[in-house]
Design a binder for these strands. Structure first.
Length: 556
RNA sequence: UGCCCCAUGGUGUAAUGGUAGCACACCGGUUUUUGGUACCGUUUGUCAAGGUUCGAGUCCUUGUGGGGCAACCA
């Protein structure tokens, strides 16, 4: 999809496009991304975005951003703004333009009138329950409405009365006249217009009737000259209706093609369920770093590149799928490993005292900013007698497989010196307090003439100049791989109680004090982190989010 | 007792009638001043039964399994 993307074989939709281009059916392709502005975009939308935008990019076509805003009760401007921001952040531009289904309300009204005149639509005065009953079931045919045979003239007048506000909400609907015995439920005289006196975020109170999805979507595609209208599998059964309207109205034949939606394990993906997590206060808003929303992933420290790579990797097919969360993590690590600056931070600090290092002395030691990128340069780190080290890097008893500090062990302090265990102190509870080591002056990093070999390398932070920070560690939001896959249990029952761990008084190397907002860092040996600017502002001290851990290959 | 879609290692996805490949995960090794990265390697798969064909993951039939469809939601 991207110019720098690996050469992946063409999936079935791309093959259709290639054929349409080769046969001359279309000179140029035109796609669209059509979200309803009733919630925030999530990683599943990212797949759809990468598909429709990516295809347009690759084949020099156009792509529209269209807000499918036919249900004013659920939609608002906040969501429109969030969606625009998220698509842009992913790195895409709607070169075909920005549209709203509400732009077409007048045209759609005229289309409906055409159908009425052709005797292909009628006004039904029955209540929703009766209409539902007459619809039949998937295994039993429906029956005709008593209003089905009204004349086009009467229907036209009634429909115009509906628009004019003569009838109260729910008093009647406009229905397409197709076939109440059709094996496809969607073809059994679907409702195409309803009366709803609701304030629309764009058209205000201009309308009191609104078209249904099926009567708006295909026509909107057609009006915009969309050649390939890509959507998820659940709309497959709508396609005959989509085509029926286009045929009856004799308008540009857009083609709907369906693909399988993305499912990620250990999370939920429906807007309804995500909304519930937000409303119940289970998470810190739509952009909580644990949410699978684009805004949540952004705050978590994901990069647009990593999300696009992820979407490339999951592929496009018609088979139901559940993608491992670890694939998303892999995509992030893959990108961040190449670009993230390295820095040292100690999340669970204990004191490390270099007993033979002169008191009051400090020296500056260079450390590379990114071993994967020599051009990233080096920075100077202060080193002195008292340092912070990670509690987990010391054990009072250890075997041969333990490369870190313990009685009798020797390790290198990253970018500094090799040190050897001397002794350690414990507090009243028996917790290790301080670890004392001696250093070898001739083992200085870069000019080591000591000849000493140390198997382990530890990160550290100079105590006197360390910055205090809060660091938030995240884990899967749900403990179960498929929280909404249990018929008899609520998805909320599977929430992971340990999905957020807040660490305070973490020690950061001083260079992190100047960290610009969005820059991703790798805290050496710990993972990738990014500053949470808004949280920091609110808390009055730096708050960092762990985006993802480093792969931990140690099985000790 | 309907209609539609789908079925390839643990996961995802290729092979378009001609050697079942790739990625992630897993496991093992080499390198390493990150138990990271990089590099190398091992293990693991065509839902079933018939049929067509010189040849079937691919085409046909019948099963089996999974998903979707009965909002005045999208």
């Amino acid at each position: 999809m991207r110019p720098d993307a690996p050469n992946v074989p063409a999936h079935f939709i791309e093959q259709i496009i290639q054929e349409d281009l080769a046969s001359g059916k279309h000179k140029r392709i035109h796609t669209r991304f059509p979200p309803e502005p009733n919630g925030y975009l999530h990683i599943g939308h990212a797949k759809a975005i990468c598909l429709s935008f990516g295809l347009a990019e690759k084949y020099n076509g156009s792509v529209n951003l269209r807000f499918d805003d036919t249900n004013p009760e659920k939609e608002n401007q906040e969501y429109v703004d969030a969606i625009r921001r998220d698509v842009q952040w992913l790195g895409y531009h709607w070169n075909g333009g920005e549209f709203y289904t509400s732009d077409y309300f007048e045209t759609l009204f005229q289309y409906a009138s055409i159908l009425i005149k052709k005797g292909k639509a009628y006004v039904d005065h029955q209540n929703p329950e009766t209409i539902a009953e007459q619809k039949g079931t998937p295994t039993a045919p429906g029956t005709n409405s008593p209003h089905r045979e009204r004349s086009p003239e009467e229907n036209l007048q009634l429909f115009e009365e509906m628009r004019a506000g003569v009838h109260p909400d729910g008093h009647c609907v406009l229905r397409a006249k197709i076939d109440m015995t059709h094996p496809n439920m969607h073809m059994r005289d679907p409702v195409i217009y309803r009366i709803k006196r609701a304030h629309h975020h764009r058209t205000g109170n201009d309308w009191c009737i609104y078209p249904m999805y099926d009567f708006a979507h295909g026509q909107s595609d057609s009006i915009e000259g969309i050649t390939h209208s890509l959507c998820t599998l659940e709309f497959e059964v709508h396609r005959p209706l989509y085509d029926w309207f286009i045929q009856e109205l004799e308008i540009f034949p857009s083609r709907q093609i369906e693909f399988a939606r993305l499912n990620l394990d250990h999370t939920v993906m429906s807007k309804r369920k995500l909304l519930r997590l937000v409303e119940d206060g289970v998470v810190d808003g739509w952009d909580d770093p644990r949410m699978p929303t684009i805004s949540g992933l952004r705050r978590r420290g994901f990069t647009p590149e990593s999300i696009r790579t992820f979407c490339d990797r999951v592929g496009i097919a018609k088979r139901e799928n559940v993608i491992d969360f670890s694939l998303l993590e892999w995509a992030l690590r893959d990108h961040l490993n190449r670009v993230a600056l390295r820095a040292m931070a100690v999340l669970d600090p204990i004191k490390l005292v270099v007993v033979n290092y002169p008191e009051g002395q400090t020296e500056m030691l260079p450390s590379e900013n990114n071993p994967e990128d020599p051009e990233a340069g080096v920075r100077m780190m202060p080193f002195s007698r008292e340092l912070w080290m990670e509690r987990g890097d010391f054990r009072e008893e250890a075997n041969k497989k333990w490369f870190r500090l313990a009685p009798g062990k020797t390790v290198r302090l990253k970018s500094a010196f090799i040190v050897r265990y001397v002794n350690h102190t414990v507090d009243a509870q028996g917790n290790v307090n301080e670890v004392h080591v001696e250093y070898f002056p001739d083992s200085r990093s870069g000019s080591d003439t000591s000849g000493i070999k140390a198997k382990g390398t530890l990160h550290w932070v100079n105590a006197a100049t360390a910055l205090d920070a809060e660091v938030r560690l995240y884990d899967r939001l749900f403990a179960d791989p498929t929280p909404d896959g249990h018929a008899d249990r609520e998805f909320t029952e599977f929430l992971n109680p340990d999905s957020l761990e807040v660490r305070t008084h973490c020690k950061l190397e001083p260079s992190l004090g100047e960290a610009p907002g969005e820059t991703p860092y790798q805290f050496t040996r710990l993972g990738y982190f990014s500053l949470d600017s808004e949280k920091s502002k609110a808390a009055g001290h730096p708050v960092w989010n762990r985006s993802v851990t480093l792969k931990d290959g140690w099985k000790g």
